[in-house]
Simulated scan of single mutants.
Amino acid sequence: MTLYSKLIGTGSYLPPRRVGNQELAAQLAEKGIETSDEWIVSRSGISARYYAEPDVKCSDLAVQAAKRAIEAAGITPDDIDLIILATSTPDHLGGFPSTACIVQRKLGITNHCAAFDVQAVCSGFVYALSVADSFIKSGAHKKALVIGSEVFSRILDFTDRTTCVLFGDGAGAVVLGASQEPGVLATRMHADGSHADILCVPGGTKGGAIDGSAFLYMDGQAVFKLAVTVLDKVAHETLDAAGMAAGQLDWLVPHQANIRIMQGTAKKLGLPMEKMVVTVHEHGNTSAASIPLALDAAVRDGRIRPGHNVLMEGVGGGFTWGAALVRV
């Protein structure tokens, strides 16, 4: 019997504090940084983002999204036998213990299932989904919880208007279950370390202290140029692997980073904008959380329905990129 993995539940969570562009611009003005709603929207399509409170951690956001995905799947936490969490902002410095293990504890999962983090920045959810799909198809696991969760507000330099206006906090999750029906049709992952320094947090640790900058750095023009190129290539590569044409897609759910990158990707695929799920205007770039956040929004409002073909794709620091084609 051939095993497949199928998406059986989605969930997402945004922290309560919504910060619109005008509010953020006023806060930045107090620091002598000039920006405006019009400037932000024209360059990114972003109107607002959400920030977690200081005592709220990545795992806290992840747990809320996970609970909703588990409930939507109609299972219990102890039915989960694999947890993969994608994040660049883990609960602990150095990423250990993994935030996935902390989520396991907070969900009350006591079955000793495997739990680990994946670090591929904004491509993290696609990477994590691909890994979970492989585990399920191998027969090693039956129900995987895949999460993207970020508190990017913790690594933003609020004196750099080119980056601080773009990012926000949030979490999204899916449950994949073993199935006799095809669900995840194809996935592809790539990386090119020669571009590692165009999107990064360049600091490290030394002697128990931060060595260098702990703030996010981005060469926006370089990222934009590379993103549009690799997203087009990986989309076609993934479609080809599944024997599917772009015209057979019901929905494109891209990484919600910048509306211009997203529009460029849809145009290259020959897809109308009406087939692209867009949430970037409301929550900004939430890195590994952005794709599952957008996916859950479209599932819950009824746009994405059973039988639909959905292409998810993202790019991130590393430089990493990937795509996953799923039949819901």
Rank of each mutant, 00 (worst) to 15 (best):
G212M: 06
E313T: 12
C200L: 13
I147P: 00
D79E: 15
N21H: 09
V63R: 00
I210A: 13
V41Q: 12
A294W: 03
I84M: 09
H195S: 13
G302Y: 14
L7P: 03
G20L: 04
A128D: 05
N21Y: 02
A324I: 08
A266M: 11
A257Q: 01
G170L: 06
K267D: 15
C113Q: 07
L85S: 01
G95Y: 06
L145E: 00
K57Q: 14
F319K: 02
V118L: 09
P254G: 11
N258R: 06
L252V: 04
L93S: 13
G208N: 13
A209T: 14
A25F: 11
S12A: 15
I102Y: 00
R305H: 14
T163A: 10
H255G: 05
D79N: 11
A324Y: 06
A48S: 15
N111K: 08
C113P: 06
D250K: 07
P292T: 13
G284Q: 07
A132Y: 01
A288R: 02
G212C: 08
W251C: 02
D250Q: 12
H281D: 15
A242W: 04
G177T: 09
D117H: 03
D240M: 10
H112I: 05
A323P: 05
L226P: 00
G139F: 12
D169V: 07
V56P: 00
D301W: 10
F116D: 03
G11C: 09
R303H: 14
A288P: 00
A52V: 06
I259H: 03
A257R: 00
E30G: 07
L28H: 08
L3W: 10
D160C: 13
E23C: 06
V41N: 05
T279H: 02
N111F: 08
G302S: 14
A323Y: 04
S290F: 09
T320I: 09
L14K: 03
G74A: 09
T159G: 08
Q104G: 03
G302R: 14
I75P: 00
V234D: 00
C164K: 03
T162D: 15
M273G: 05
R18I: 13
A132P: 01
I40Q: 01
H190Q: 15
L239W: 03
D55T: 14
P54H: 11
V310A: 03
L185H: 06
K268T: 12
A132F: 03
P202M: 14
D296C: 14
L199T: 00
Q248C: 08
A235D: 01
L226Y: 11
A235G: 06
Q221L: 12
N285D: 15
L93K: 12
A209K: 15
L216G: 01
P272N: 10
L145T: 01
S179D: 14
G124T: 05
D301L: 09
D60Q: 11
N309Q: 15
G168Q: 04
T162C: 06
V126S: 01
L7F: 09
D169H: 10
I259V: 15
M312I: 10
C200I: 12
R303V: 08
C101M: 09
L7A: 06
N111L: 10
G220Y: 05
S138G: 15
G95P: 05
D78I: 12
C164N: 04
Q263W: 07
